[in-house]
Structures are given as structure tokens and as C-alpha cells.
Design a protein around this nucleic acid. Structure first.
Lengths: 231, 231
DNA sequence: CGCATATGGTGTAAATTTTACAATAAGTCT
DNA sequence: AGACTTATTGTAAAATTTACACCATATGCG
């Protein structure tokens, strides 16, 4: 094989770390590989990028085929291209993460793998390929991003309580000390883009909390006034 | 061509935004393309990634071939993969930026291009391919990173004055108001990893300033004590 | 030599932001 | 009715950030 040919004996893929928030914890959606290499192992959902497909579109496609969801938050994180990261050839992969609302979709592993399901982040262990490293990068990015942009809301239903929101931040940030309840509420409400609904939480065995929602228009105003989201 | 073949009719490259600081301004090192497409246009230095070469190594190689420098700060930023970004075929490119000390090297365009030279960032205009977009991403990343990690020192000689350092931050951050001299000095010195040398600035027609240097060991201690760099 | 010129170097007070902290309210459950 | 569980709310101290101006010390030139 000539050198010029060998330049083209390569492929690129996308891998998508799909985050969800469930039972007070961060979860990720994994597939179980149905074919070699790493058959039977859990892995990040991903696929080769089609010749006429943009990278972002490939990441969106992987997500949609698996969950049926479109228009969710998606962010490119990092590209992994070690020579030997894929046992069958030179494949560089562009890692993305996305944020979805758990429960609003049906998981369809068929197109990808033997099976697919949500895993608590704390229980994820040995993944195929270099997917643990990819996951680490995406998690690190999420931890940073969630403090500087209103991403948390992507993981919650449209209406949520302030306690749920705080629980989400506590879980994602995983700080040695939890956030202070009073200070958290003060800060997030002072930004002025959470709107109180007249509805209350239902089905809880205690005083129900007010439901709030994220108002994107008010958030834009907040930005236009020169403020920045910062938690 | 079968579908599987077409997956492999693609290549990947790296492009490197090489930042330097000269005459009080941020500069970048550009090459002038010696061949089609975009012959004669200024472009970011870059190259196809060799079949047995890691991505980071490719970015380092591009930098070394152009400047002779090794071991400089290098950071992967983002991967650009629009289907039509390269007129000759599907090429996705991984963008990096690096930070070098201007003047400590000789530029050798031969291996890459017709010519290569430093450009003031403010004078960079229409680059080849999607390189303006790549530059924007790298600049944005640099602006963020320079506030949260001690990267500024990579752009300065080993010994520098506090005014030079501040000038660098003013230039990179490009804020509506310059930093306050007293507050800047207070803050950066309070972090405790700049060490005062007994040397003074030379060749200036006014009171010479003390020279300082960045002490990496003290910076590590600073981090280990739980502090973070933040300007 | 001395004076003009240019940048170097320094402290404090006010404003703002962050932190720490606990008692009452409002529902459900038995 | 009483126990239980989470919701909701304010204030004072501490820490950080901001604004701000004058004297010091070198060079260069007449």
C-alpha cells in the first residue's frame, strides 16, 4: 500500500455521552456491544460518521436512533485519536455529550447493540475502547459548563422544584460540601430567569414545593444586561 | 465505490494556531499556501496526520517543523468536520493552539509553504479554508484559559516585569477597561508563585522595573493548598 | 549637573459578594 | 391530634473586589 493510500485507510466516528438525571443522581446511557471487538462490553453509543454527514449531525443521529429524541443539548468535547485506540484500524473519534430528560423516551438498542440502558454514573466501571477516558473528559466538561451556563435545566422536566434543582447541582458538581440551601435559592432566583408557577409538587408525603420553570427569554435579557450565569 | 470503501475515503489533519506576544500585542504565526487549493492565501499551519502518529504528536510536529521548538504549551480545542470544509475531499481537522515565546526561534516555511511569518492578530483577515472560524474558537479558548490557568507565562520570556505581564493580560483579554495596576499586582503576587529576581529591566529610558519569574514548583504548592488560579 | 520625562511602585476605604447559620410553615400519614 | 418530613425565609460577619493618586527612580538631554 502506498503512503498516500494509507492516509485514507482511516475512519472517524462520534461517541456520545448521554447524561440524564434520575433518582437524584447523574446517569448515562450505555449500549452493550453486540459484535467484536469488545463484544458484550458496555460502551458509549457511537457510530462511524457517514461520508456526507457533518460531525454534529452524526452525534445527533446516534442520539436519535437510540432515544428518538431530537433538538436536545449537544456539545462537542474532545477528539481521541491515539494510533491504537481501536483494535481494527485507525479510527479517531469525536466525543460529544448530550443532556436529556430521562423518562421522555423509549430506548431502542436494536440499531446499535444487544441492549442499552441507563447506568448510574457511580456504577459505571470498565467500558470498551478508551471510553472511560472519554467519559472522564465529558464529565469534567459538564462539571465546568453547568456552573457557567444554564444547562442544568436540560436535565430536569419543564417544571421543577428548587430542591430538585439544587439536588441536581449537588450531584453533578459532587463537591465536598453540599450547597447551602438558602444561599442557593437566593442566588438562582436573583438572576431572574426562573419563573414561579402556581402549581405545586404532587404526590409527596410532606409540604409540597412550588414548581418553577426556566424562562429562556428572560435568560437572554439577563445576558444582554451584561450578567453571566455563575454558580 | 462501495459504501464501506467510501467510509475510508477521508483523511484527518491538525491545524495549529500558534500564539506569540510581541510589541504589546498578540500575534499568530501563519503560512502562505504554496499550492492549490487557496494557493497564495494565508492559512493556519497544519498537516495531515500520519497513519502511525497520534493527534497531539502531529500538532507538535507541525510546530516543530515550522519553528524548531519543542515542549511548548499545546492544547486541543475543537474538531472541524463540515462535509465541504475542504474542496478536495472529506478532511476533518483537529484544531490546537500553542503558546510560544517570540524571538526564540527561526521560522522555516520551506517544508510547508511559500512563506511564513508572524501576523498581528488585529491584522489577520481572510484566511484559507474555514481557518477564520478555527482561529475564533482558539482565541475564545485562550481568553478563557488564560484567566484560569497560568498560561500567560508561556508567552513571555523567563524573566519579565509585572507591567509586561499586565500588558499581556490586557491584550489577550481585550476588556473594555484595562486591569487596574495596583489591584493586578496585588492579586498576582498574593498567589505566591511569582518570584522576584535581583535583576532589573535594561535599556529603558525610565526607572527600570524588577524582573520576576514564574515558579512552577510554587505554583504546584499553591494548587495543593486548594487554591485555584483566577484572574 | 540638573531638570524634564517616563514608568515603577505602593495602601486604604467603600462597596459588593460570599458565607454561615435556625426557626417557622405547610403539607402527609397514622 | 400529633408526628413527621420537607419548604420557605433573613441577617450579620467575613472575605473579596473595586476605585483611586502620589512619590520614587531610572534615563536623556541641554
Amino acid at each position: 500500500m502506498s503512503e498516500i493510500e494509507s492516509f485514507f485507510k482511516s475512519a472517524f466516528s462520534v461517541d456520545n455521552v448521554i447524561f440524564g438525571f434520575d433518582e437524584g443522581e447523574l446517569n448515562i446511557l450505555l449500549i452493550q456491544r453486540g459484535a467484536a471487538p469488545y463484544k458484550g462490553k458496555w460502551a458509549l453509543p457511537g457510530d462511524l460518521v457517514y461520508p456526507n454527514e457533518d460531525l454534529d449531525a452524526a452525534a445527533e443521529r446516534v442520539l436519535e436512533q437510540l432515544t428518538g429524541l431530537r433538538g436536545v443539548y449537544l456539545e462537542q468535547v474532545k477528539t481521541f485519536g491515539s494510533v491504537n485506540r481501536h483494535p481494527l484500524g485507525r479510527v479517531i473519534t469525536v466525543a460529544y455529550f448530550s443532556l436529556v430528560k430521562v423518562g421522555k423516551h423509549i430506548i431502542n438498542p436494536a440499531s446499535f447493540a444487544q441492549s442499552a440502558r441507563w447506568h448510574k454514573l457511580s456504577e459505571v466501571k470498565d467500558l470498551a475502547f478508551d471510553h472511560n477516558e472519554i467519559l472522564d473528559s465529558c464529565l469534567k466538561r459538564l462539571k465546568r459548563k453547568v456552573r457557567t451556563a444554564p444547562l442544568g435545566f436540560e436535565l430536569l422536566p419543564p417544571k421543577f422544584t428548587l430542591s430538585e434543582l439544587q439536588q441536581l447541582y449537588d450531584s453533578v458538581l459532587d463537591l465536598p460540601k453540599k450547597l447551602d440551601k438558602r444561599n442557593f435559592r437566593k442566588k438562582i432566583l436573583s438572576m431572574g430567569f426562573l419563573v414561579e408557577s402556581d402549581e405545586l409538587q404532587e404526590g409527596v408525603a410532606h409540604r409540597p414545593a412550588k414548581l418553577y420553570s426556566f424562562d429562556r427569554v428572560k435568560y437572554e435579557q439577563f445576558l444582554n444586561e451584561g450578567y453571566v450565569f455563575d454558580l
